[in-house]
Design a protein around this nucleic acid. Sequence first.
DNA 1: GTCTATAGACCGATAGAC
DNA 2: GTCTATCGGTCTATAGAC
Lengths: 196, 196
Amino acid sequence: MNHSSAATVDEATPILLSAAQARVITAALDLFARQGVGGTSLQMIADEIGVTKAAVYHQYKTKDEIILAAAESELRRLEAVVEVAENESSPKRARDSLITGIVDLAIERGRSASTILSDPVIVGFFADHDAFRDVMYRLRHILVGDDTAPQARVRTAMLIAAISGAVMHPFVAGLDDDVVRIELLRLARRFLALPT
Amino acid sequence: MNHSSAATVDEATPILLSAAQARVITAALDLFARQGVGGTSLQMIADEIGVTKAAVYHQYKTKDEIILAAAESELRRLEAVVEVAENESSPKRARDSLITGIVDLAIERGRSASTILSDPVIVGFFADHDAFRDVMYRLRHILVGDDTAPQARVRTAMLIAAISGAVMHPFVAGLDDDVVRIELLRLARRFLALPT
DNA sequence: GTCTATAGACCGATAGAC
DNA sequence: GTCTATCGGTCTATAGAC
């Protein structure tokens, strides 16, 4: 069973975003996290970067294209973490590298990445998204190997939800980033080491 | 330190929703989960229950009132679970009752409850919401007692995020409810039993 | 790459009849 | 409690000048 066929990510796309496009995506991600995807208009995005709507439409033809590009830019960060983990020398090292990377990502990106992953609009976009499924599959493979039983799926889903969801929780708002990072990592490691 | 002063929930409100209001809230919750709060219009809600916008406006004066009522109706379910747990005869039984109740709630309500809790609009509404803070505080108290250290906060946030987030995850979509319930409960119990 | 201006649909919200 | 009809405003998206 081949779990990491890079071919599905077709071409891997080298630079991806122009400077103007990057400004749009950065503003979009910020607004999506604050207002939700459905609650964010192109006018808001334009205002955020100090241009008019027409200038935004010059970079992306539709709002859906912006949503997709924004979601994919966050997905690419996760994919990079998965790729680093896959290149570790042992399964155990790979697992450890993966959870460290995901925790770092969650802390670094804050609500941006986490809110995006749970927004119904994005979930709908990703449901049929090949690259998303590929990354999730590789991620699960690092964590639980070839085990595709329901128990393994629930376990993987819980770990991802725990890490990405915890950083959004009100209980954690205002706490020092390093404290949260260390605690997340500690608990995630113990969760992983749980006997099945 | 008194953790469960029911006085803050003032009056406890007996029946709360008329039949017509209940139809609005049910439709709203369903649409919020599918399209997000910002992506749901009053026209959609009206269409869903087969009436006109004006009929909806007869039940609630503004969209914000609908959002608040929908969020509070889910909060009330969580509060009921917390209350049952508080009446257990020992801290250990209380913890077990709480996680069983939360897992059942997550399974039973599916995306409705979980999406609502992470929607930026709802998060904003609940940020200054006394009843919400009260329920969350009582919930944490059952899980970690009087410990308000950052570590205890992160731990509680992780457990809640893990349970409510896992049921939304694509990995879990399509799995049998009972299988998911049993596995969630098993892993949540082990997570709780982790030595600090 | 950015602007002004505009089209047409949909938004939240209200008035008033039944 | 539900309807029709309507208000002013915002939405996505486009045309065309600079």
